[in-house]
Design a protein around this nucleic acid. Sequence first.
DNA 1: ATGTGATTTTAAGCAAATCTTAAGAAAACC
DNA 2: GGTTTTCTTAAGATTTGCTTAAAATCACAT
Lengths: 224, 224
Amino acid sequence: MRILIIEDEPGIALFLKEGLQEESFAVDVANDGPSGLELATVNDGEYDLILLDWMLPGLSGIEVVRQLRKISSQVPVIFLTARDTVQDTVFALEMGANDFIKKPFSFEELLARVRVQLRGKQSENSKIVHRNLVMDLNTHQVFVDSQDVSLTQKEFALLEFLLRNKGKVCTRSRIIEHVWDIHFDYNTSVIDVYINALRKKIDGNTDTNLITTIRGVGYIIKDE
Amino acid sequence: MRILIIEDEPGIALFLKEGLQEESFAVDVANDGPSGLELATVNDGEYDLILLDWMLPGLSGIEVVRQLRKISSQVPVIFLTARDTVQDTVFALEMGANDFIKKPFSFEELLARVRVQLRGKQSENSKIVHRNLVMDLNTHQVFVDSQDVSLTQKEFALLEFLLRNKGKVCTRSRIIEHVWDIHFDYNTSVIDVYINALRKKIDGNTDTNLITTIRGVGYIIKDE
DNA sequence: ATGTGATTTTAAGCAAATCTTAAGAAAACC
DNA sequence: GGTTTTCTTAAGATTTGCTTAAAATCACAT
């Protein structure tokens, strides 16, 4: 995971850099707006996250984000700032920022927010393992007891969502939003149908029970 | 956590209500400005958040917020609106709104913003612990002596309500309001039936006694 | 373009869990 | 002892989820 820090105060920049390196991130630092923007645009796609100071010499943080979004860079941006009025927050979010941390902040807090932004990416090139089930996100394969189980796109997406939220109940609204990208007015029983299909393919005729129904709420893959 | 939705389009209101209920919020809906304002003022302090549509019959959202702030209500207000000019945003915020979501929005985004507003209020850990009983609000599970006890929706909701009011007597009217969402003329013995079910499942055949009856008033889970 | 097979969605009947009602038994209160 | 309140139980109503099949859509090769 590569992180770009755009911050003019050397003390803070160093503090962040070392802290993040200890967490095994690859960290680059730019100490003014223009050079930060250049690094970000030239290496677009390379960075998994940008930590961006609001007040910067040369080019303000806001302007950096604007330019970045203009070239349709999707990289998550977290603002670091002393300001904290609601207007500023909203403004920054509207300009394309993903989150907003007000100084002074604890490193713990920053780390938590960084992980939120990187969630998903962090395990992107890897596998999700749950008991006797292995989901390979690269090859789009699923194995149960090392047996290849072939899933359709939607089945795969649904299972992935449930597994990523292992231990938490996935409500129907959440599922329909994330897996089907329907944001309003869902009145459909697709979820039921796909849960059914998954259960058939995964649990088969064994008496295991991967997906648990929480009546009136949704579904969950229990932890342990 | 109680949320008041003031929204005139029934479709959107329902969508929001159901989604938020799945997330285990208690939700009330008003479908025009005046009735929304009345609910909010009469129950000031009861709601933890208000979702407010900009365009409303009777009284605009802006006016509702103004009136609310006039009586110095501190309840957080999130605007839902089709407008998205910077002027509108700033205007709404100056009138006392706390955040601003432009339609169409995803439920996920709304939920995120709601959680931001409730941050702090919402107990960090999603577990309620009482003696040998653990209630996990995420997984919708209840454990007694680490044994999984399966509760139905209503049982869960009732127990949650009693636990959240640990040490306080819950009157029948408050229970029927919060758990059953009946705001008038309750003439039913549902509560008795569910208290009974809970006692059976929780206390089982042990001689513990989680829920105490306060004759003529209601029920209580005693502290200690 | 067109056809074919796979996938996704809709719809409907069925099954099961849950919720509500009601009524008699038990307990608490005067 | 009589009255009120709560407890308990069971049956009926309702809701919710499961399953299946058919219709619609999509993907791809011809």
